[in-house]
């Protein structure tokens, strides 16, 4: 919890803070949890003064209060439903990606996830002047591949250059890098330095395999999810995350070898919509199914084709 410091309130000067620290009141939460009369006794401040500090701190650190009508208006004006560029996918998504949501794309290896990501990033950059973030965790982003996809879709050279300049690529190696990146994006959006609607993270599992302590792993996933929610809801972006499905060949039960979703139990419930992509054998066609969603129809399916010009 936030540590008390003199910048928080004019009455929280050094002697007051020292007195509080001596009684193990280090953080804002400690201060609020302690009864006012105890604080008065420790710091020799007036009751009214402590009440004032308390009110100020609660105001500062509690969540912003929004009334229903203005919240609704904010969502209507600032959210965006933007097309994925893939007609059939748009139809099962009821229009495309909606800001404020976290989407997950999962599939077995070589099912077309990276292809789908490239198509999405190309389409969204093509249809607007906004930036798109592509956060690459396993060095899979290939500029040449993107250019090949753009060239195959017969985009003219100038436009290709412009689209490629809109796409911001971040190569991250560790989960710490990813969290630092997400906070950086938050600051950039807060200072209105960039305008963003879509952040793609390809993919999450590689960042967590090196962390064997599951408590630490889940703690880091929670922190990552918290800042993702801030980016999605407060700054009106859509976040698309890639996850793996692994075939559990150690489990020889009579059930189908359906994929096991990576990242564990906590993450399972985080995305607002989970899309599963499956490639048909010996074909360039894939099916995309809505496996789970808060607002869309679960089980809705569409078939798409992988071509040189991306996924259509």
């Amino acid at each position: 919890m936030s540590r008390l410091n003199p910048q928080m309130h004019p009455l929280l000067n050094s002697p007051v803070l020292e007195a509080l620290l001596a009684k193990n009141i280090y953080t804002v939460l400690n201060f609020i949890e302690t009864e006012i009369k105890h604080i008065v006794a420790i710091t020799n401040l007036q009751y009214k003064e402590v009440l004032g500090i308390r009110k100020h701190l609660i105001n500062k650190y509690a969540a912003v209060t929004r009334d229903g009508v203005s919240y609704y208006n904010e969502i209507i004006t600032k959210s965006a439903l933007f097309s994925t560029g893939i007609k059939r996918l748009d139809s099962i998504l009821q229009g495309g990606f909606l800001t404020g949501n976290i989407y997950e794309i999962c599939g077995l290896p070589a099912s077309g996830k990276t292809q789908l990501n490239l198509t999405l990033v190309r389409n969204v950059a093509q249809n607007s002047i906004l930036n798109v973030y592509y956060i690459d965790t396993k060095n899979d982003f290939s500029g040449r591949k993107l250019k090949a996809v753009l060239d195959a879709s017969k985009t003219d050279e100038e436009h290709v250059k412009q689209i490629m300049s809109q796409i911001l690529v971040k190569k991250v190696d560790t989960v710490h890098d990813l969290i630092n990146t997400l906070y950086e994006i938050k600051n950039l959006l807060y200072t209105k330095t960039i305008k963003l609607r879509l952040i793609i993270i390809d993919s999450l599992p590689p960042l967590f395999y090196s962390i064997s302590d599951f408590s630490k792993r889940y703690g880091l996933i929670t922190t990552m999810v918290n800042v993702m929610h801030v980016l999605a809801k407060e700054f009106h972006t859509a976040i698309v995350v890639t996850n793996v499905l692994t075939t559990s060949y150690e489990n020889t039960s009579t059930e189908d070898i359906s994929g096991k979703i990576g990242l564990g139990k906590y993450w399972y419930n985080v995305p607002n919509t989970r899309l599963t992509i499956k490639k048909f054998e010996n074909s360039s066609e894939c099916s995309i199914i809505i496996a789970k969603s808060n607002r869309l129809l679960e089980g809705a399916q569409c078939n798409v084709k992988i071509t040189d010009a991306g996924i259509i």
Partner: peptide
């Protein structure tokens, strides 16, 4: 240093580097 994220590059810069 600890809070510094990796460098951002545009897709165009990445492409030029790869070439």
């Amino acid at each position: 240093q600890l809070m510094k994220p990796p460098v951002t590059k545009t897709a165009l810069e990445v492409y030029n580097e790869e070439c």
